[in-house]
């Protein structure tokens, strides 16, 4: 089982990084979600794998899965959502301002359009 999880983490990381290295915003965002999945799984795996041992206290249960990485990953999942949302909106705003969703170039001054009064 450990091999499956480790290789899944590896593949997710590779796919995530490859997509983040693309030149347009949307693949970058998808890549980021892939990378988040990988990292969350990785963190979770730091507590080792356990089957049928949820960390819920009950009498007559011998052992529990490590709850600490789970708590960390739980907030990480929600934070990843917040981060993805922010990145998406940044990408969206950039696209709306410049008409381009490329992430590999400096916007030329003529691209940026008119500045609205701040």
């Amino acid at each position: 089982m450990e091999i499956l999880v480790a290789s899944a983490i590896g593949f997710l990381t590779a796919a995530g990084i490859y997509l983040i290295l693309r030149m347009h915003s949307f693949p970058v965002i998808i890549g980021l979600t892939f990378l988040s999945y990988a990292i969350n799984l990785f963190l979770f795996a730091m507590g080792r794998l356990a089957i049928d041992r949820p960390p819920i206290i009950a009498s007559g249960v011998e052992g529990y899965a490590d709850p600490l990485p789970q708590a960390l990953v739980l907030t990480a999942i929600v934070i990843s959502f917040g981060m993805t949302a922010l990145i998406v909106v940044l990408a969206l705003r950039g696209f709306l301002e410049t008409g381009s969703d490329r992430v590999d170039e400096r916007p030329s001054p003529s691209d940026s359009g008119e500045r609205y009064p701040s």
Binding site: V5, A6, I9, G10, A14, A38, L41, A45
Partner: peptide
């Protein structure tokens, strides 16, 4: 990916 997977 290889590094992270191996580490895990």
């Amino acid at each position: 990916g290889l590094g992270i997977g191996g580490l895990a």
